[in-house]
């Protein structure tokens, strides 16, 4: 256990926002994955985006002023 985050998750208001983000990231070729929201982050039953921490800056820039982001969390693989 190094304690460094192994991935980031990005939370949105609803699945419509996630899919809007997904379309942009696909177009820009930025690697990501859609996963159910980890319950330790939020009780929301929706999906969120997961990506490598080193992609964070690029992904945030791609979505800037295009999709409203609720929260970004760093998570350690358990």
């Amino acid at each position: 256990m190094s304690g460094s985050p192994s991935y980031c998750v990005m939370l949105f208001k609803s699945v419509s926002y996630v899919l809007k983000a997904e379309k942009i990231l696909k177009k820009e070729n930025l690697p990501h994955k859609l996963i159910p929201v980890p319950k330790k982050i939020s009780s929301d039953c929706g999906v969120c985006l997961r990506f490598e921490p080193n992609m964070r800056e690029k992904i945030e820039a791609a979505l800037f002023k295009k999709v409203e982001i609720e929260e970004i969390c760093k998570l350690c693989e358990q």
């Binding site: 699945v15 419509s16 899919l19 809007k20 859609l34 929201v37």
Partner: peptide, 22 residues
Amino acid sequence: SPGRSGHRLSLEAARIVFETRE
């Protein structure tokens, strides 16, 4: 069912709905 679950068939349905909006 779109937007209700995280599995691929739910996501596929949600993508159809998003496509319509777009």
